[in-house]
Design a binder for these strands. Structure first.
Lengths: 214, 214
DNA sequence: CCTACCGATCGGTAGG
DNA sequence: CCTACCGATCGGTAGG
């Protein structure tokens, strides 16, 4: 057996000031591979190549790390939706709505660790979820993408009259439910792969479109 | 301090042959209160009033207990949906579809512990979910309720022509997504309470109905 | 940012 | 079904 201490020249180049993002990445990896049970500050520290006491300089406790991961995840989800919408061009609003739906679902499939953490990773306690203001805002921004599309559709008369909040919630529920069923394997492992998932998303969202369109 | 040992006449009356269901109840309580992190075979044993080695006579390991809880949850979910459908009478199919949706959502709200366990409690690992045949069947039965209503609607010409599988999935996605958003507090704590949730469910499901009805 | 240490809890097994 | 025990891991702190 060689020496027990691994170091020599830490995994990448933390140590300086970039330990925080490194811990987030490590935590995400642990979360993805082993679920909430697989995540611990100690393991994250080890993955990042620092002592198990180091993380406490960046995160008050384990929940704080999970929250940081969730916040990052929300931002990435928002970005993905916007990218898909942009890629769909400035054409028909229903097409853009469909694009945003695919952005949502594809993000979930490709980033199940982030996705699960965002939606109920930590505050699964019984009572009210004690989400931080920053996390709440990140979530509101993601929801705002859908909300914005609906508002635009109503304004342009592309969607039938109705409560925009209810319409947005209907869309959100649908893509969220589909995402969860896909990543949890409820629809079979094959369904979660790219092309199949895309087809399922399109087919599913079209039923909702019929209910929303003018 | 009185004696350390609590017993005298165990909590209820396990010991004989009803330890298994008692452990399931205990596990559910732990799961509900503290999430996956809060569940341990030892804690469940303590809640049930037995030694921490006793559970191993009924469950191979921790995952086996979680799976048993999920199976029980699926059965209760199925029952709840059927009850709501029955309560809605033999009237219009869309009314019954709506009733089943409320059965689904209300079960989730009232039994978040069961609901979370059913959908991704354990097998959150990265790869394929290793769900037991019994668990898969329990899940298929719950899905079958929705599936049956859709089939009936198509047969009676109450729903527009379409792939029954896709239509069922659309309905499932919607109620599932709404349930998850509600119990994880994404819609605010107030929304998850009875009347408010019912209104949200009805409003949401109606948009889908427009897309499904003939 | 590290080493060293604390108490607590865990899954699991031995052995009866 | 119990007591007693194992090694491992955890969150967190002291103290530097």
């Amino acid at each position: 057996m060689s020496s027990i201490r691994v170091p020599r020249k830490r995994p990448d180049s933390y140590q300086h000031g970039d330990l925080r993002p490194a811990l987030i990445q490590a935590g995400l990896k642990l979360l993805t591979e082993g679920g909430t049970r697989g995540l611990s500050l100690r393991a994250a520290a080890q993955l990042a190549g620092v002592s198990h006491a180091a993380p406490y300089r960046h995160f008050r406790d384990k929940d704080a790390l999970v929250e940081a991961i969730a916040e990052e995840g929300f931002r990435l989800l928002t970005r993905r939706m916007r990218e898909e919408i942009e890629a769909a061009g400035s054409g028909d609003l229903l097409v853009r709505l469909r694009a945003s739906a695919w952005g949502y679902v594809s993000f979930a499939i490709e980033n199940p660790g982030y996705f699960r953490t965002i939606f109920g990773g930590v505050p699964c306690e019984d009572g009210a979820a004690p989400r931080s203001p920053a996390l709440q805002e990140a979530g509101a921004e993601a929801y705002g993408v859908l909300r914005g599309l609906v508002a635009e559709g109503l304004q342009r008369g592309r969607l039938r009259h109705g409560d925009p909040e209810q319409m947005s919630l209907a869309a959100w529920s649908m893509v969220h439910g589909l995402s969860m069923l896909l990543i949890e394997g409820q629809l079979g492992p094959a369904s979660a792969r790219g092309a199949a998932a895309r087809a399922l998303t399109d087919a599913t969202i079209r039923f909702l479109e019929q209910g929303l369109r003018a």
